[in-house]
Design a protein around this nucleic acid. Structure first.
Lengths: 197, 197
DNA sequence: ATGTATCTTGAGTGATCACTCAAGTAAAGC
DNA sequence: GCTTTACTTGAGTGATCACTCAAGATACAT
C-alpha cells in the first residue's frame, strides 16, 4: 500500500460542480479550478484526466442530485400530479446559496456545438432521462385516475420539461424572487388544473 | 473624400450574427470571425472596436429582427391572443436554415456572469423589452374583451416569455421537429384557451 | 528506520487567445 | 496623374489556454 489521496473525491467534485455550474464550461479556466479545488494541475489531471472529463463527472453528479430531489418531492404525498406541481414550486424558490438559478444541463446544452460527441450527447441523454421520469410520473397519475385517459404522458412530460427549462432561464433573467415564485405558481396551478375533479 | 469600405456593415453584422448565434460568445474565436466575415483582424477592430462590441451589435440586431417578426405575426389578424399563439407556433417550426434553434438572448444570458456590466445587462434589457411588448399585447387583448379583466397582463407576459425560453431550449435538445411542433401547439392552445367565449 | 507505492507539486510546454500597428492599397477630388 | 484620405492587411504582441512531467513529499508495510 501507499499514501492515500489528500482530497476526498466526492468533496472535490462538489466544489468543481459549484464552479462549473456557476461560470459554465468555457468561462471556467484551470486557474479557477486550481483555486476552487485547492489542487495543482498535476493532481487535477491525475485524478480526472482532463477538464472535459471533470466537467462530465460534475454533470453526472448534478443530474443525479436533481433526480433524487425530484423523486423526494414527487413521492412526498399520495398524489402524483400534486408532487409534480410541488417540484415546480420548489424550483421557483431556489435559495441564493445555489451556484446558479439556471439549470446546469440547459447551460451545457446551449454552450456546446450541435455535433459535440462528448458533453452535448451526455447532456441530451441526461435530459432524456429526466423527461422519462416525468413521463413515468404522469403515467402513474393516469393509472391512479388523477389524469384523464385522453392525456398523453409523454407529451405532458415534454411540456413539463420545457416549462422547467423556461422557468429556470427566466429565474436567471430577473432579480425578483417574487416574479419567479409567481411564475412557478402559475405553472404548478396549471398542472394541478389538469387533475380530474 | 476617400475610399469607401469594401464591406457593407449590415451584411457583415448579419454574418457575425449567424456565427455568434450558432457557436456562442466564448466558443467563437477571432479566427472564426475572420473566416466568416472575410475580414482581417485589423479591419474587424477598425469597424467594431472589440469582439465584445461586435457581439453586442449582433445581439441588438437579433433582438430587433425578433421584435419585427413578432409584431408582424401579432398584427396579422384582429385577435391579439390569436396573434400571440401564432407567434409561438411559428417559433415551434423554425427551419434548419436558422443558425440555432435556441434563443440567442437566452444563450447569452446563460454564458455571461451575473455581474457582467456589458453583455449581461444588455441581454437583460432586451429581454425586458420583449416582455414589455408581450404585456402590451395582453393588455390590448384585455381592452378588446378577449381576455378576462381578472387577468394580469404583466404576469401573462412573464409566463409567455418563460414558455418561449423553454420551448426554444427544448428545441435545441431534440432532433424531432414533430415533438417541438407539438409542444408549441400545446402552448399556443393554452394561450387561446384563456380567451373569453 | 527504511523502502515503496502513490499522490502532489509547479515550472514549463506549445497552442491559441484577443488584439495592435506600421505598411500597403484603393477610391474620391483635383 | 497626383494627392489625399480612409480602409485593409497580416505578421507580431503579451497573455492566457489546457495540459505535462520530472522531482519531491507523504503515508503505508515491513
Amino acid at each position: 500500500m501507499a499514501r492515500q489521496a489528500r482530497h476526498d473525491r466526492q468533496e472535490v467534485l462538489g466544489k468543481a460542480l459549484e464552479l462549473f455550474w456557476s461560470k459554465g464550461y468555457h468561462a471556467t479556466s484551470l486557474k479557477d479550478l486550481e483555486l476552487a479545488l485547492d489542487m495543482r494541475p498535476g493532481s487535477i489531471y491525475a485524478a480526472f484526466g482532463s477538464k472535459e472529463a471533470l466537467y462530465s463527472e460534475t454533470l453526472a453528479l448534478y443530474a443525479e442530485t436533481s433526480r433524487l430531489q425530484f423523486l423526494e418531492t414527487l413521492e412526498a404525498g399520495p398524489r402524483r400530479l400534486q408532487g409534480l406541481a410541488n417540484h415546480v414550486r420548489k424550483l421557483g424558490c431556489a435559495s441564493d446559496t445555489v451556484p446558479s438559478r439556471a439549470c446546469m444541463l440547459v447551460k451545457t446544452l446551449l454552450e456546446t456545438p450541435d455535433d459535440d460527441p462528448g458533453l452535448r450527447v451526455q447532456t441530451e441523454n441526461l435530459m432524456r432521462g429526466m423527461e422519462t421520469m416525468f413521463a413515468h410520473a404522469f403515467r402513474e397519475a393516469q393509472e391512479r385516475g388523477e389524469l384523464g385517459p385522453e392525456a398523453d404522458p409523454q407529451r405532458c412530460a415534454s411540456r413539463l420539461q420545457a416549462e422547467i427549462f423556461g422557468l429556470r432561464a427566466y429565474a436567471q433573467r430577473t432579480d425578483s424572487r417574487e416574479k419567479v415564485a409567481q411564475l412557478a405558481e402559475d405553472i404548478a396551478r396549471e398542472l394541478e388544473g389538469r387533475a380530474l375533479a
